[in-house]
Nucleic acid binder design. Sequence first.
DNA 1: CGTATGATTGACATATTTCAAGGTCTGTGG
DNA 2: CCACAGACCTTGAAATATGTCAATCATACG
Lengths: 264, 264
Amino acid sequence: MNNSPNVVDLKVLKQACKNCGLSDLCLPLGVSAEELEALERIIDRKRPLQRNEHLYVAGDRMTSLYAVRSGSVKTYTVTNDGQEQITGFHLPGELLGLDAINGGLHPCSAKALETTSICEMPFEALEEVSQRIPALQHQLFRIMSREIQADEHFMMLLGKKSSDARLAFFLLSLSTRLGARGFSHKEFYLTMSRNDIANYLGLAVETVSRLFTRFQNAGIVHVRRKLVTIERLEPLRQIAGVHRIQERCQPENQDLPPLQPPLI
Amino acid sequence: MNNSPNVVDLKVLKQACKNCGLSDLCLPLGVSAEELEALERIIDRKRPLQRNEHLYVAGDRMTSLYAVRSGSVKTYTVTNDGQEQITGFHLPGELLGLDAINGGLHPCSAKALETTSICEMPFEALEEVSQRIPALQHQLFRIMSREIQADEHFMMLLGKKSSDARLAFFLLSLSTRLGARGFSHKEFYLTMSRNDIANYLGLAVETVSRLFTRFQNAGIVHVRRKLVTIERLEPLRQIAGVHRIQERCQPENQDLPPLQPPLI
DNA sequence: CGTATGATTGACATATTTCAAGGTCTGTGG
DNA sequence: CCACAGACCTTGAAATATGTCAATCATACG
């Protein structure tokens, strides 16, 4: 079935891009069938990570990029005053390690939030292959560009948006990304703790907790521990002040009471 | 002197990468002399922009990346509730437009803060050339990676740091970047307004203004309108809680009064 | 089951924003 | 060259969103 010359491990090859449901989210987008083979040859599938296991830690030499196949990963740095700062949560189909190309060392650590399987792509090989396959090079540029764009968007969130807008955005982002991966848009498990969410969004845990209760009392979401159900999408969008990227900006955030003010 | 076949405009060619003092900050880093020629052939130098002139506006089709040659540029989006959000200030040697590769449209607008000259690099040509020149491809990956890394760092600033840390970081960042470009580390003009700074740092103008006075009263910087003089670097670093990237993290932020508390 | 960890809730503290006023440049046109 | 207008910046006082501290509660896990 697979005529690759270097059959090291059947399990590895079975999981290659061709048969991966994520291929349209991940690298192979826009890469032809033959080109895919060249790509597959360099991609390795690591043993799955257990919850809390590290994929790499800050300071590690960067040798590969990684794609999440299933599960989820958080990346974080430790600031010099010793506190953790989460830089991102990564879902299936998303790439990890792009921030390390520049310096050759990982500036962040990456830790599995649940049992997670990962594809490893040795970076030098990836560069070499993308040297031969324009579509792959282009795709890599696109992926990095998308990351930059997302970061800019997130900077706006942190710089200008209130706590409720941040949480709403966070939930919508998860919903959209999980939806794109074939999971439910409406109902999902949070694989990260409230602490992680707060940390990521630049808020205190208590604030996040209060917001969940407020959202729930307002009938917008239902939250039971880690399980989130989005009940009404539109209000959530309003709260997030969604900024549907790539759309002409018309003031859409007209009225709507500010989420039942303090909601005493 | 230049044997390029398509001599359209002498002025353009005179300004090519080879003679550009910024080449070690900009694309050509790590590109050999011959390779440089191929690169130069596609780089165009636009007429300088006047203050407040746009290089592109959000929604424009992306055709080129741009490098700042001299002057400075701000990039910003307008959120759907109509307020501007500045996503970055760009100094000589820095690239613009990386966030647009993904969608093909510029998600931000770019506006000159002063008279500014720009190199234009048609993106398709750039991709094609970097297909042939591994070092250029690598350099592009690195530049995008660096951008991602910087964004992550900035996210931490916005999410976790106090207003004084933000302004201190901002001043240090300008100082470092200007220094790398041959300008003074210690004394420079702010080409952006207080409003722009506040907007960028996620603060109110008034807060920025007060912080400048506080820093000045503490003898850390001297500020007279747009002219900033850094008097004492270390305290500024302490306030910023510098996170010297790529260094082993040891708590270095020990004591030092929190900038003469409220400084009544 | 009991313990530990994470989540929630309340009361209080505070950094930063908002509102309001006044001050200071800078460029323009007389 | 001067006067003026408008933008920009600074400062103070009051308001507020969010953080901090502390206690309780729920859940998961050994």
